[in-house]
Amino acid sequence: MITVSINGEPRQLPQAISVTAFIEVMGYSGKRIALERNGEIVPRSTFANAILNDGDQLEIVVAVGGG
């Protein structure tokens, strides 16, 4: 069991999974999102190989209306 923070909210995951698997769990597969881990961008091309660690702080963002 690991605990990560997603957009400021804690979330427990059964094990250390890849970002690709994590995106799937969150229901964002195929969605236009960008992900930052501990202040650093995780490029989409590296999602499959990037494994989440206990304590990771993740930000998941989308484009919304704004001026």
């Binding site: 998941i60 989308v62 484009a63 209306g65």
Partner: peptide, 12 residues
């Protein structure tokens, strides 16, 4: 456009 956190738990 603005960049904002996704709404967790909302309809994806």
């Amino acid at each position: 456009v603005a960049i904002r956190r996704t709404n967790l738990g909302q309809n994806a």
